[in-house]
Nucleic acid binder design. Structure first.
Lengths: 117, 117
DNA sequence: GTGCGACCTGGAGCGCACTCCATGTCAAAC
DNA sequence: GTTTGACATGGAGTGCGCTCCAGGTCGCAC
């Protein structure tokens, strides 16, 4: 069991963001102690790792929400989850390709400028 | 000289976005014909290519604005422009590295799911 | 001469993903 | 026993980057 501040520390999400994610249903209702304070399970923290990965790769929250629902719905959704992740993977690949191409433009521009000095 | 709709076609920016960029000073005041309609020069379109590259690689508008000001200020700012672009290049590199690492996590997750089928 | 479509302007509105705020509770430290 | 600090809640506010809208002008096709 992890306290909120431990989860902030481990995941890099702010406390407000964790509350927000719970509010919109990206996190399932987190357990509470007797004082009503959140206590995150190992599974919660693991799921947050996945959330971080998907966010950092540009998946919109609405899509993550669909993925979260598939996970909650049980094992019969596994092929749907694979489809969703494969589609996302293609988008990540496209992002990398785009960045790489644009980066070469930047490199050319830098060389161009260097010839002026 | 290009009409607004030609520039929309060529650059992929919407007309509203072009007007917005002019309003905030990311584009210098675009020339007008006698009817007050914009006529973009070759140089305007070229600059928009640079803008597109910087935007697609995640540079915030505020930073592009600083770059635009350096360009307008003349040749004595070329080393500053190089510094700015090199710093941006590092950030692009970091983005690519991050995406690549996250992508391998996604791949692992997909394999993990496949073992369930 | 009227309809149409491309364009103009200033300014309001929007979607996303948080982030902040006021107010309150509880537990341990001193 | 009171101060401190980590937490709670609901709801408002923020920043970014556009995007949309109302109302108007202009030039050409019919």
């Amino acid at each position: 069991m992890y306290t909120p501040s431990e989860v902030v520390e481990e995941t890099g999400f702010s406390l407000d963001t964790l509350r927000y994610y719970e509010k919109i249903g990206l996190l399932e209702r987190i357990g509470r102690n007797s004082a009503g304070q959140r206590r995150f399970s190992e599974a919660d923290v693991g799921w947050l790792g996945m959330v971080r990965c998907l966010r950092e790769t540009g998946m919109p929250i609405a899509t993550m929400l669909r993925f979260a629902e598939l996970v909650r719905a049980g094992d019969h959704t596994i092929s749907d989850r694979i489809k969703l992740l494969e589609e996302h993977d293609r988008q990540v690949q496209a992002q990398i390709a785009n960045l790489t191409e644009r980066q070469s433009y930047i490199h050319h521009k830098i060389s161009y400028y260097r010839n002026f000095l």
